[in-house]
Design a protein around this nucleic acid. Structure first.
Lengths: 214, 214
DNA sequence: TTTTTAATTGATCATTCAATCAATTTTTAT
DNA sequence: ATAAAAATTGATTGAATGATCAATTAAAAA
């Protein structure tokens, strides 16, 4: 890892992967504030200094963790959405896959939350206030599904940006609100949310026309 | 503040209030991780030791800040909801007030987020995973509005718990997602969200009967 | 006024942490 | 086999932090 070329050896890459996994486990177990390099190293079974050797600094490590978490959930969801053909089926798949991922990758979600709400850029801007550079690919897909449904006339009139974020918010709520998790199991929440959203997007196409809707 | 009686002098109470305000400002400006007692004291124009004198420890201070933030937003929202009479009007007021509070109390919301996603109990449980003891009074009100609307027959059939959390999630999304704030202004988001929710709760009361809805 | 109690401070302590470095082992290249 | 580069470690450093304490000032009670 001494050379500045983009190349990294297999062993270095494996180590980095190992550290990223250990970091995720650490974040889940004790949270960001207590997730010191020593704690992460302990879980990886290595020395603290080795982390500094493979990553520029702690922020660099956390950024790699974050990237991995985002890519993993995005590919999981998008893959399932793209199996479907119609906007309605895609929308259902989107909600179902988003919630299913949370159910099957709990540690990942906790780690994601810990990083997003704790990490800050060098100029001290919290990650949760960062506008995802280009754009969140998941939200982008959701927007496209909604727009396509409206174009095809199977969805009614509504403000797509607001609808998309409402759906995302409803999905995220299940991840954040643990008392909700206790009251409603994942399957029920998924099924009912799909039903409610379906009702919301179906809309009253004629009635909507009286006003200028986005 | 030496005596263990419940009484606190006026001056002590004012100081505590001042420190809580300084803590909110600090949390907004530099975030929880960097919000050391020294930073908070600096913004309050007092010495670090004085915080330890008036609060048991840092966690105690943060708990007081959190309580104040929760009470303030709850009273703001609930007061406006209770002015309305019909379930539909109450629901609209709920959404509008929740979003309006965010718009007019930005610092408070940032501080709230910082605490909820960073603070942990002594046994290391993050606040965001805590089931609000009894129950969140805001969510409770929302549930009641929805149930009452269904009872009166002005709302259709839907799973109230899921609907309530979907609405809360949609509201919270605006607070958390800053790229959304840039794309859609608060007034538009509020108006459109009310419209969408209205469509969702109105429901197709007859069509819903074919299945067993919660 | 005097005395007692409350409020406030500066200094200090022990701890924790990220980062660094020289030294050592392992891997790769010659 | 040997030299060179990469990987890994233990120890250390310097900075930051929460908490504590004796000392000082302000307020309240006597």
């Amino acid at each position: 890892m001494k050379k500045e070329t983009g190349k990294t050896s297999f062993i270095a890459e494996a180590r980095r992967e190992q550290m990223i996994e250990a970091a995720i486990k650490t974040l889940e177990e004790i949270g960001y504030v207590k997730a010191s390099l020593a704690q992460i190293a302990k879980r990886a079974g290595i020395s603290t200094a080795l982390i500094s050797y493979h990553f520029k600094d702690k922020e660099d490590l956390m950024n790699h963790v974050l990237m991995k978490l985002l890519q993993q959930s995005a590919s999981y969801i998008l893959e399932r959405v793209r199996r479907e053909r119609t906007p309605r089926a895609k929308l259902h798949a989107f909600i179902e896959a988003s919630l299913a991922y949370q159910g099957t990758h709990h540690a990942n979600n906790v780690a994601l939350i810990e990083i997003i709400f704790n990490a800050r850029t060098p100029d001290n801007i919290p990650y949760y206030q960062l506008n995802d550079e280009d754009d969140d690919p998941i939200l982008h897909e959701l927007r496209e599904i909604l727009a396509e449904g409206q174009k095809q006339g199977v969805f009614g009139a509504f403000h797509t940006e607001v609808m998309a974020n409402m759906i995302q918010g409803a999905i995220g709520e299940y991840m954040l609100n643990s008392s909700l998790m206790k009251k409603v199991d994942l399957e029920t929440y998924s099924k009912e949310l799909i039903r409610i959203v379906n009702q919301a997007v179906c809309g009253n196409v004629e009635a909507g026309k009286e006003e200028d809707l986005g």
